[in-house]
Structure formats: C-alpha cells, structure tokens
Amino acid sequence: MNRKLLLWLLGAGTPVLLLLLWWATSLQSTDTFFPPLKDILQSFQQLWLFAHFQSDVLVSLGNLLLGYAMASAVGVALGFVIALVLVARNVLEPLIHFLRSIPPVALVPIFISLVGFGTEMRVFSIALAALFPTLIATVDGIRSVDSGLKDVARVYRFTTVEKVTQVYLPSAAPQIFSGLQVSLQVAFVVMIASEMLGPSQGIGAMTLLAQQSFMISDMWAGILLLGVIGFAANIVFSLIRRRVLAWYIGSRRLARSS
C-alpha cells in the first residue's frame, strides 16, 4: 500500500518537479533562444489573455472546429456509401488510397493557389486532410461487422435505414472513433500549417511572426499555447468517446476480467 502511494506521488510529482526545474534553471538565463520561463509566462499572459484572444485564438479554434466537423460528417457518410455500395467502392477506392498517401500539409499550397489565403482556404485544407483517416476507418469498421449480426438483421427484415442506424453504426463505432481521433490530430497539424504559410492571422501565424522578428519569449508563448490546445483537444475527445462508447468500453472490460 505504502509503495503504491509512493509510486503515485512519483507520477504526479515528476511533471511538477520538471516545471520547477525549468523555472529555476532558466531564471538567470541569458541564452537568446531559451529565455526564462518567467518571461515566457509573462508574454503568454500579455499575448493570449486576452489581447489576441478574439482576433487569433478564437479564429484558429473556429477554423479547426468547422473543418473537423465537415471532415467527420463527410468521412462517415462517404465511408458508409463506399463500404455498402460495391460500385462506389471499386470506383473510389484507388483514388482515395492515392489521395491519402499525399502528406496532408502538402495540400495546403494547392488550396492557397486555388482560393487564396482566406479563411475558406484554411477550413477546406483542414477538412480535406482530416477526411481520410475517418473515411478509411469507417470503411474498415463496416466491413468487419459480424456477419451473424448482418444475417439476423436480414432475417428480421430490417429496412436499410434500420440496418444502418441500428446494426452498422453501433458495431463500427469503435473503429470510427479511432479514425476520428487520428483526424483530430491531422486537423490540428493542418490548422497550424495553414496559418504558417503566407500572411494570415491565427496562433500559428503569430508564433511564426514572433520567431521571424526575434521576439523569442512571444514565440515560446505561442508554442506553449499550441501544446496546451493539442493536449486539451485530445482530452475532450477522450471524454466524448468514453461517453458515447460507454457500452463498448464496459463490455471490453468485462471480457478481459473473465
């Protein structure tokens, strides 16, 4: 029992210790690239709370959410069509495999050339890049639906709508969610990349601007904020997943313990 407590303390203590160490060792730092943590936190407060909150942070998050929502909706819907309609699968699958092999960030210059540097470009880049993980996971998820379940649905003469909503969607849900998680990370990366290319607003643009104008602690503040957003987005996603897939997680735990 005592040992357990000690280990737990170790887990909670190490990050705090590392932060304190960063603070202490950097306090006297004169290195241009690694300013004191104190200065970084000061810049963080000046920049993001709340001078640029509305003009940059909200804009970035809004683009991220909008692009991601589009990608999720289209990805799941198209995934169903491709998995269930044979012709669509044959026609679209090679194309999709080619498109998803392109590094998502490489699509950003193409969108810049097509629609300019505006908000549409960023939302579209995010949406297209984040589409593929969800799409492919959905197709795989539906294909691996238990054939017994399909037969039962057929015996009970489920309509197509019933089949989709009551058989396919729930049993593919775990895989769809892991696709959605990858999509979220891709969307986040493309959000930053789309802001770093060309003159624009947003957290990524602010961070790169600070770097180019040698405002090092401002750049660190941007990196810190992006890190926190990346982490927080993942936490929020996990919470939603745990709620929606509660039945699945519970059944897995039961299966493992027996």
């Binding site: 190490t14 690239f33 890190g227």
Partner: peptide, 23 residues
C-alpha cells in the same frame, strides 16, 4: 510512474508545434 504523466501530456502534441523553435 515517473514518466507516464509527462509522456501522456506530450503525446498528442505534434512536432509542428515546436518547428519555429527548432528552425
């Protein structure tokens, strides 16, 4: 135990975030 919290925090952060610093 010492690293789990640190690793879990760093994992969802893509390397593009620290690109300006590394450059």
């Amino acid at each position: 135990y010492a690293t789990v919290a640190v690793l879990e925090f760093l994992k969802p952060i893509p390397p593009i975030v620290i690109l300006p610093l590394v450059v």
